[in-house]
């Protein structure tokens, strides 16, 4: 009786077939395979378990694992679809697909809305926008008085909150982005193609 040796390729936990991922996303199979190499690299930066932890995401993004950043946290949380504190390969590919040059603008608009809807209420509220402006100022070492921050937030709401109910809903957001397309500038990564 002979023996057959099958070479098994060891994949990270949460690995999904590139053919399946390509069929569900904007990526080709070969692009998914390239993403797997990037995923493996990031997911082994600190804890070598093949999953991307927040510290590893921060390290890959900022070259610093301890750099707290509200927006990076939000991106991580949206990528972590299962809400288990780590990003698996499938989550990584499906989420990055939003940033693909071929992905519909509508999908990008919806993603940014969720990103800015900090408390997942279905609206972007003034307090949330103020919190994000303060976070951005702190990140940039810019110092503006609270009054000036209020003016910026109020002015933005005058432009975006067309029904003037004190919160921005998905329809208002879509209209606002259509008038200000530069708001989506981070949402397309040419590297992905």
């Amino acid at each position: 009786m002979g023996c057959v040796f099958v070479k098994q390729v060891k994949h990270t936990p949460g690995y999904e077939d590139p053919v399946v991922l390509a069929s569900e996303t904007a990526f080709t199979v070969s692009e998914v395979e390239v993403l797997y190499e990037l995923f493996k690299k990031i997911s082994h930066l600190i804890i070598k378990d093949g999953l991307i932890h927040k510290e590893e995401f921060q390290l890959a993004l900022f070259k610093n694992s301890n750099r707290h950043n509200l927006f990076a946290d939000r991106v991580f949380d949206l990528f972590d679809v299962k809400r288990n504190g780590v990003i698996e390969f499938g989550e990584f590919v499906r989420s990055l697909s939003v940033f693909h040059p071929n992905t519909q603008q509508e999908e990008k608009i919806r993603f940014v809305f969720r990103l800015y809807d900090l408390r997942s209420t279905g609206y972007i509220e003034k307090e949330e926008l103020k919190e994000m402006v303060i976070a951005l100022l702190s990140e940039s070492d810019l110092c503006l008085s609270d009054d000036v921050v209020e003016i910026i937030v109020d002015q933005t709401f005058k432009l975006a909150d067309s029904n003037d109910d004190g919160r921005i809903d998905p329809v208002e957001w879509k209209d606002f982005v259509k008038k200000n397309p530069s708001l989506l500038k981070n949402m397309t990564l040419p590297y992905l193609k």
Binding site: N69, A72, V75, E139, N180, S182, L183, N186
Partner: peptide, 26 residues
């Protein structure tokens, strides 16, 4: 405040935390 600063979302979009392009830099 300069008019360009009047759109808070423009300001926010400059955050490094939103620049995922850095993930692909070697």
């Amino acid at each position: 405040v300069r008019p360009a600063l009047m759109n808070a979302f423009e300001l926010i979009s400059t955050s490094q935390g939103l620049n995922l392009g850095t993930l692909f830099e070697k």
